[in-house]
Design a protein around this nucleic acid. Structure first.
Length: 287
DNA sequence: AGGGGGACCTGTGCGC
DNA sequence: TGCGCACAGGTCCCCC
């Protein structure tokens, strides 16, 4: 499902449901998602309090008072939903997200205050793991991530340096989470269009003003998408039932044959395949 | 080491 | 209506 903006929306939805609450019970309905759950996963969660929920790139990080962090990734089809049917009043209005087939409810967390959080993931490309919070810097996955696209480290000069020498299309390079962390197929296509750069251009050729334009577009599209609550494709719903609406602002993604929205451009949106994934772009204004 | 292709899964939508 | 195929917001692994 999600790229950085969607994961951020999920994080914000989980905060009022779980932050400060103790986990009372965990139902684990299968031994694995993409990878096996860690040893004693349910037991290690049970009884711990969720102190804070962070996000890094597309990863959710539940900080537990046990000294461990639960890391979660939603893969392509993972989603959380929240029920708050108990006696305690919750901040925010919780409603059911769009219906999901309950046979894919792989993890169900029961927390204080009558809160139930369900993780549903038909394709099971997502995963969950636990690690010692003080060992985060050396975490195999988190340690290899590039900067957040809307953070201070990310800039034109940074991007130019990161792409230097890369003999791959810039589209593929932007999907590399070690270059910039959190972009996926949608926002890469959108950022390339906004910056007028062809997805086929070699990454190594992005420098100077062009790198500046691209970094600016990446930042802008991510900031706007976060503000919009992410994008809702198909039946995706945020954890609190609120739908992200950024999909109405797509300029190229999934818009094959549409007129190019660039002012004074008379091009038409095309679709090509790069490293096995669809790319939508306008060959008239993206060079 | 970097780059490309396939693998991992289920669901959906489309053409025949 | 049913069937087969293409495709889907993401990594990860293996091979050159």
């Amino acid at each position: 499902m999600p790229e950085l903006p969607e994961v951020e929306t999920v994080r914000k939805g989980l905060v009022p449901a779980l932050e400060g609450r103790r986990i009372l019970a965990v139902e684990l309905n299968r031994p694995d998602l993409r990878f096996p759950f860690p040893a004693r996963f349910a037991e290690r969660l049970t009884g711990s309090r969720v102190e804070r929920i962070d996000r890094r790139a597309k990863y959710l990080l539940l900080r537990l008072d046990s000294g461990e962090t639960m890391i979660g990734h939603l893969g392509m089809s993972g989603r959380f939903s929240i029920e708050a049917g108990g006696e305690a009043a919750l901040p925010g209005d919780f409603v059911h997200a769009a219906p999901a087939n309950p046979k894919h409810d792989h993890v169900v967390i029961h927390a204080e205050g009558g809160v139930t959080v369900r993780y549903n993931d038909p394709r099971r490309f997502g995963y969950m793991d636990l690690f010692a919070t003080d060992a985060e810097a050396s975490h195999k996955v988190l340690g290899a991530l590039g900067p957040e696209p809307h953070g201070n480290e990310f800039s034109g000069p940074y991007l130019a340096a990161a792409l230097a020498g890369r003999q791959t299309p810039v589209k593929s390079a932007l999907l590399d989470q070690s270059i910039v962390a959190g972009l996926g197929n949608i926002y890469v296509c959108e950022a390339l269009h906004r910056s007028g750069i062809s997805p086929r251009r070699l990454a190594a050729s992005i420098s100077g003003v062009r790198a500046e334009r691209l970094a600016t577009a990446v930042r802008a599209v991510i900031v706007e998408a976060i503000e919009a609550g992410g994008s809702s494709l198909k039946d995706f719903a945020a954890t609190d039932g609120a739908l992200g609406y950024f999909q109405h602002r797509f300029r190229v993604y999934d818009r094959l044959g549409a007129p190019c929205p660039t002012e004074k451009c008379d091009g038409t949106i095309q679709r090509i395949v790069q490293s096995g994934r669809s790319t939508w772009f306008c060959s008239a204004c993206q060079r």
